[in-house]
């Protein structure tokens, strides 16, 4: 029996989760929400994390109904993410690990998403679409690494949606992407937007600048509604994501597809992916907001796998890094090739 605790705070979500051999004992999270029209800045986000982490940690332990002595390893997000929030959370992880005299495991955030997705859905060897505010990657496992087959060559899809939400001054509560999704449901007219796919890679910055500059004109002239714009943006960027995912699946001969990351909660994205998967005789795996959106338990799950299959991270190496590629981590815990 192995119990792992995970600390996550690489962006505006702060979470602590505890897992025991595949059973989620607790998964507590809070989100730093900024006023409409504003994004979250590193310094303020770190301050939010510092102010809330002790409370979140207490609640996670209480909910799991365990004592610190029962924990086997303390896992934290090493990166990728925003520097200041990452460091704020790592300090707490480091402190409790020393207080409780437990080993530490440094976890790659993206690997956390993938492993949690595999655990929750039961997908064995899926092609993974990882979509969030900071990441857009199409990943498949090959020779002991999660290899990136396709990704954005500029901004992440979630960033594109979030920044468009700022143009429309949509609320950031619970998340800008959620509010775009709700607006899009009422949209009817498809406005033509740039569609940029380069092999298995995608690009969103052109679409964002185009829609940012066109939106005021289109709305003022009454040519379309804000709902139509949300609808058009979603339809266009999601079609690009599905297309590149399908290309990667064809390339790897894969018949499973898993969606992870915050944008992965979007029902329209899941629906489109489901249609694609069905047409090619593949199976779609998706999770809900508890596990799609950044959380502590996913870090605990990836750390649990690493703890059981490889060395722990010595205290002096428990640093953070803003740039940490998914394919930098050797996957020691999977026996398939």
């Amino acid at each position: 029996m192995t119990i792992a605790i995970g600390f996550e705070g690489s962006a505006n979500k702060l979470g602590v989760g505890i897992i025991r051999d595949g059973v989620v004992l607790s998964n507590v999270r809070t989100t730093y929400i900024t006023p409409p029209g504003q994004g979250f800045l590193p310094r303020d986000t770190a301050k939010h994390h510092r102010e809330n982490i002790i409370d979140i940690l207490r609640r996670a332990l209480k909910e799991a109904n365990i004592t610190p002595q029962q924990i086997d390893c303390v896992c934290y997000t090493k990166g990728p993410g925003m520097g200041a929030p990452l460091v704020a959370v790592a300090i707490v992880a480091r402190t409790v690990a020393q207080l409780w005299k437990k080993p530490m495991v440094a976890v790659n955030h993206c690997i956390g998403h993938i492993e949690m997705g595999r655990l929750v859905t039961g997908a064995v060897n899926p092609t993974v679409l990882y979509v969030s505010g900071g990441n857009t990657q199409v990943i498949a496992y090959l020779q002991r690494r999660y290899r990136i087959f396709g990704e954005t060559i500029d901004i992440a899809v979630g960033n594109c949606l979030d920044r468009f939400a700022r143009v429309l001054k949509l609320s950031n509560d619970p998340s800008p992407g959620y509010n775009i999704e709700q607006m899009a449901k009422r949209g009817k007219k498809l406005i033509e937007l740039p569609y940029t796919v380069k092999g298995m890679d995608v690009s969103f910055s052109g679409i964002l600048s185009y829609i940012e500059s066109m939106a005021p004109k289109l709305l003022d002239s009454g040519e379309c509604t804000a709902e139509d714009l949300c609808f058009s943006l979603q339809e266009t960027v999601f079609a690009m994501l599905i297309e590149t995912t399908e290309r990667a699946m064809a390339h790897c001969g894969s018949d499973e597809v898993l969606i992870v990351g915050g944008v992965g909660c979007n029902k329209r994205l899941q629906e489109m992916m489901g249609v694609m998967a069905k047409e090619r005789g593949a199976k779609l795996y998706a999770t809900d907001e508890r596990f799609c959106i950044d959380n502590g338990v996913m870090i605990a799950q990836a750390g649990w796998e690493m703890f059981r299959s490889g060395p722990v991270t010595p205290l002096e190496e428990t640093t953070c890094t803003q740039r940490f590629r998914t394919d930098e981590v050797e996957v020691t815990w999977r026996s398939d090739s």
């Binding site: 990166g79 990704e151 060559i153 915050g262």
Partner: peptide, 13 residues
């Protein structure tokens, strides 16, 4: 340049 742009991709998640 494009490769470096790629590095930036792994920002926040």
């Amino acid at each position: 340049e494009v490769r470096l742009r790629g590095r930036k991709r792994t920002m926040v998640g």
